[in-house]
Simulated scan of single mutants.
Amino acid sequence: MNTTKAIIFDLGMVLIDWNPHHLYRKLFDDEEQMKYFLANITTMDWNEEQDMGRSLQEGTDILINQYPEHEANIRAYYTRWDEMLGGIIEGTAAIFNQLKASGKYKLYALSNWSAETFDIARQRYVVLNQFDGIVISGVEKVRKPFPEFYHILLNRYQLKPSECLFIDDNYRNVAAAEELGIPSIHFVGPDELLVELKKRGIIPDTNGPIASA
């Protein structure tokens, strides 16, 4: 029996194609050098500090002090951040639209995202204004996978964990949600997500194609 009342989406790499490769392929001629830079200089751990509220300027200055030889490429991370946005992930957007149209579920977003860059995305993507609520780490000064971040959304919108479904591409974040009693799906792609939602009875299991976004 489907008891789900609220569906919680991660945003980057689930609904929105955010990827530093979109920018840095323009800046590096060598793919391996680009991968090294992103893995060892502008790391995900470093980026998550900005997602948790550290200013973009402070984060940039810290790295430039550590790696002055990479200053130009470090500065590009946020001065050209919008070039990391590749667009909406159409399959996920189509699922979102079908869930929205059904009227059966409240739809929320819980995202690790800098408060300073989120407005750029919000102005670009209409779907970000169609959620019933959005909780952004850079605003709250805490992020996934810390339990406090999930609790902010649950408490703010008076949600019961067992009546929610959480979708995230980072298994670390999925595991943290499940520890709190929130049923979760590890996102690997829109097709697999659709199959899982049908399996759980959230989207009707019909043979017809899902409507495009």
Rank of each mutant, 00 (worst) to 15 (best):
T4N: 05
F9M: 09
I16Y: 01
I16S: 04
D17L: 03
W18R: 08
W18C: 02
F28D: 00
E31M: 15
T43I: 14
T43W: 05
T43V: 11
N47C: 14
D51A: 10
D51M: 11
R54Q: 00
L63A: 07
I64T: 06
N65D: 13
Q66N: 04
P68A: 04
A76G: 03
Y78K: 07
W81L: 13
D82A: 15
A93T: 09
I95V: 09
I95Y: 04
F96T: 00
F96V: 00
A101E: 13
L107Q: 10
S111F: 14
S111H: 15
S111W: 14
S111D: 15
N112E: 11
N112I: 01
N112A: 03
W113T: 03
E116D: 10
T117P: 03
T117I: 05
F118Q: 05
V127P: 10
L128A: 05
Q130S: 00
Q130R: 08
V139P: 08
E140N: 11
K141D: 11
V142C: 13
P145A: 13
P147K: 09
L154I: 12
L154G: 04
L154V: 01
N155W: 15
R156W: 15
K160L: 15
P161S: 07
D169F: 08
N173E: 10
N173Y: 08
V174C: 04
A175E: 14
E178N: 06
L180Y: 14
I185V: 02
F187D: 06
V188T: 15
D191H: 13
V195K: 15
K199D: 15
P204G: 00
P209R: 12
A211N: 10
S212C: 04
